[in-house]
Amino acid sequence: MTKTVEGLAPGAVGKGRVELGGTASGVKVLRVRSVPSAEASRPNGPCPASGVLVSADEGDAAMGLRVVGLRLRNCGTADVALNGYPELQVLDVERRPVDGVQVVHGGARIASGTGADDPPRAFTLKPGEAAGSTLVWRNTTEGGAPVNAPYVRVRATPGAAPVTVTPELDLGTTGRLGVGAWVRDDAASPTPGR
């Protein structure tokens, strides 16, 4: 079960109740992820000044292949033009850039059939419309140290304000993260089987 607590100052404590649907004992917090408020992903939150909300789904994983969908919704009052790929920056647990990870356009260099291989197309999102993209990677470990990076800083378009999502990248030793082009949500299936 995941619970998000927003708006805590550094060093502050968040309290709350999580309904587990039964009796629970021995519950403990396994990990805490935090992002700067200005970069927080709030898929159902208030519309930011940029007029776009960017979020990530919980993804799918099978046999070392990982696929996470990104979603962008135009929550503003102006049209949003898209043509290309989200800009990504992989960040470590301290939110520092991770060196040595190659971000590749499309998913074919990672695996086939991920839904991340359509070429970029220019389109415009009217207020209320949405688009999707896909992150694809393999957790394959061979020689070397595996790369685990919880955060990805996403810019929907060049120069856009960043949003940080937490796909919990476990890249193994592959050193590659694939990203699909933005596609209109009615034509997109950001995660296979959804």
Rank of each mutant, 00 (worst) to 15 (best):
T164I: 13
W137G: 03
E39S: 09
P43G: 04
V32E: 03
W137P: 01
T173S: 14
V52C: 13
T191F: 10
V32C: 00
T140V: 15
V13S: 12
S50G: 12
S41M: 07
R194P: 04
E129S: 12
L177N: 06
P158K: 10
P192Y: 03
L91P: 02
S112M: 11
D60M: 15
G113H: 09
V163A: 10
V101Y: 04
D117P: 07
V93K: 14
E58N: 11
R17N: 10
L169E: 00
G21R: 04
L8A: 02
Y151S: 04
H105Q: 15
C75M: 05
A56I: 03
T174P: 04
M1P: 14
G100F: 02
A188P: 00
L65I: 06
D79G: 09
R66I: 03
G59E: 00
R95F: 03
G113D: 10
A145N: 13
A61C: 03
L72P: 00
L8Y: 01
A56E: 05
V35E: 05
G159P: 07
V165D: 04
G64V: 00
R95V: 06
A181L: 08
Y151N: 01
E129W: 14
Q102Y: 08
D186F: 14
D185L: 09
S112N: 14
E168S: 07
G106W: 13
V154E: 11
V104G: 13
R194D: 13
P150I: 02
V90H: 03
L177D: 07
V80R: 05
Y151P: 01
R17K: 08
V54C: 09
G14H: 01
G128E: 01
T174Y: 01
D57Y: 06
E168M: 05
E58G: 10
P86S: 09
T23A: 15
S55T: 06
P167H: 01
G113K: 09
A12D: 02
L8F: 00
A181Q: 07
L135G: 01
G193T: 12
V5E: 08
R155D: 10
G175H: 06
P127G: 09
Q89R: 15
E142A: 15
G14K: 00
L177K: 06
I110K: 02
M63A: 15
R109E: 15
M63Q: 14
D92E: 04
C47T: 12
E58C: 06
L82H: 01
V5A: 04
R42Y: 00
A40H: 01
G22D: 05
V29G: 00
V52N: 12
P190L: 04
N44R: 15
